[in-house]
């Protein structure tokens, strides 16, 4: 059986809020190392990969592989009841048809209990190859969100170019062109504002802004975001959750017709 208690319960709500517009039904795969999720969007352009490691929970118990087939719209309805500072506990049998979710207020004077019906989801798992990316950019997640939403107002697509001079986000639309360039930046007192660009070779790729803006719904999870690029492979956008738990998004590039 599964029993997992999360003190940073808002993490669960933020993860679900970040992915529910991209994927609707997905398996939460539980085993002794933690809770993982991998799902593609309907059009098979983007992939979500999440891992909440066992260390993120206290206690965490899961002695067998358990797949929790969850409709995220339904889970969102249950998570509406979650309040700041609540402890959340997930419980399920070995072959569950429902997921038991308990919220406890930090003062322990309120316990809310929900049973969410589960579904059988036949999900294809994709093998994600280990990639040495040509460019890795770590930057404030709010900045990335602002760049993507600002450029989306002008165009459907953005070209991301990483060179030794910096990283340039540019777009061309009916009303004109736009571009934002970021250079390496270090702020000793406010490290969360740093822009770190690691480059082994120049990269230039074009992506759909609709998906990037969608990924930015994960912004409340972390004040930093990591963007990894290599020519002719999917973009990786990573938000660290707690410790080494993560939420990753992969996006296939657009190519010249």
């Amino acid at each position: 059986m599964l029993e997992a208690r999360l003190s940073q319960s808002m993490v669960l709500k933020k993860v679900v809020d970040a992915i529910k517009d991209l994927v609707q039904d997905c398996n939460f795969d539980c085993n002794d190392s933690g809770i993982a999720l991998q799902a593609m969007d309907n059009s098979h352009v983007a992939l979500v990969s999440m891992l909440l490691k066992a260390e993120s929970f206290e206690p965490y118990r899961c002695d067998r592989n358990i797949a929790l087939g969850v409709n995220l719209v339904s889970l969102t309805k249950v998570l509406r009841a979650l309040q700041n500072d609540d402890l959340v506990t997930l419980k399920a049998d070995d072959a569950p048809d429902s997921l038991n979710i308990t919220f406890e207020s930090s003062t322990a004077d309120r316990i809310s209990e929900y049973d969410l019906k589960l579904m059988d989801i036949d999900q294809e798992h994709l093998g994600i190859p280990d990639t040495e990316y040509a460019a890795t950019v770590t930057m404030p997640s709010t900045e990335f969100k602002r760049i993507c939403t600002d450029l989306q107002a002008m165009s459907e697509s953005v070209t991301i170019e990483a060179t030794k001079d910096g990283i340039k986000f540019s777009c061309a639309g009916d009303i004109g062109n736009g571009a934002v360039t970021l250079r390496n930046y270090q702020n000793v007192e406010k490290e969360h504002l740093n822009v770190d660009i690691e480059l082994t070779e120049p990269v230039s790729l074009t992506f759909s802004l609709k998906y990037l803006v969608n990924f930015c719904k994960a912004q409340p999870l972390s004040d930093r975001v990591k963007i990894c690029l290599s020519n002719e492979v999917p973009l990786l956008v990573e938000y660290l959750i707690t410790g080494t738990s993560y939420l990753r998004f992969y996006l296939a590039p657009k190519v010249r017709d």
Binding site: A46, E124, L126, S157, S208, P234, A252
Partner: peptide, 14 residues
């Protein structure tokens, strides 16, 4: 014009 590629072209089913 640019064509959107599928993620399935990069990551194989396992």
């Amino acid at each position: 014009t640019r064509k959107q590629q599928s993620i399935l072209g990069f990551f194989a089913k396992s």
